[in-house]
Amino acid sequence: MNARLLPYVLIAPVTLFLCLFFLYPFVLVAKQAFSTGAGFSMDNFRDVVTYWKFPISLKNTMLLAVAVVPVQVALALLMATMVTRMQKGRDLVLYVWTIPLGISDLAAGIIWLAIFEQSGFLNTMMNGLGVVDKPVNLLSYQNPGIVFLAIALAEIWRATAIMLVILVAGIGLIPKEYYEAAEVFGASPWKRFVRITLPMLRPSLQTALVLRVILAFEIFAVVAALGGTLFPVLMGETYAYQFDLLNSGAAAAMALIILAISIGFTLIILRILRVPKGASI
Rank of each mutant, 00 (worst) to 15 (best):
N2W: 00
L5T: 14
V9E: 14
V14A: 08
L16S: 04
F17M: 07
C19F: 13
F21R: 09
F22K: 07
V27Y: 15
Q32I: 02
S41W: 09
D43G: 08
F45Y: 14
R46L: 04
D47E: 15
V49P: 13
Y51L: 03
N60T: 13
L64N: 13
A65W: 12
V69F: 07
Q72T: 06
L77G: 05
M79E: 08
A80L: 05
T81L: 11
T81F: 07
M82N: 07
V83N: 09
R85H: 09
R85M: 04
Q87F: 05
K88F: 13
G89N: 12
R90M: 04
L94C: 13
Y95E: 14
Y95W: 07
W97G: 10
T98D: 04
G102H: 03
A107S: 06
A108V: 06
A108K: 12
W112S: 00
I115R: 05
F116P: 01
T124R: 03
T124K: 01
L129C: 06
D133M: 01
K134T: 15
V136G: 01
L138H: 05
L138Y: 08
L139Y: 03
Q142P: 00
P144F: 04
I146V: 09
A150G: 03
A150N: 05
A152Q: 04
L153H: 06
A154Q: 07
A154K: 05
A161Q: 03
A161I: 11
I162K: 05
I162V: 00
I162R: 01
I162C: 02
L167R: 00
L173E: 09
A182P: 02
A182T: 12
V184A: 10
F185V: 04
F193L: 00
I196K: 11
P199V: 07
L205M: 05
Q206P: 08
T207N: 12
L209T: 00
L211C: 12
L211M: 12
L211T: 02
R212A: 10
I214T: 09
L215Q: 11
A216W: 14
F217A: 10
E218Q: 15
F220G: 03
A221S: 05
V223W: 06
L226C: 02
L226N: 05
G227R: 10
P232T: 10
G236F: 10
T238G: 08
Q242M: 13
D244T: 12
N247A: 09
G249A: 01
M254V: 14
I258S: 01
A260E: 07
F265W: 11
T266P: 14
I272W: 00
L273P: 00
L273S: 04
A279F: 10
A279P: 13
S280L: 03
I281G: 08
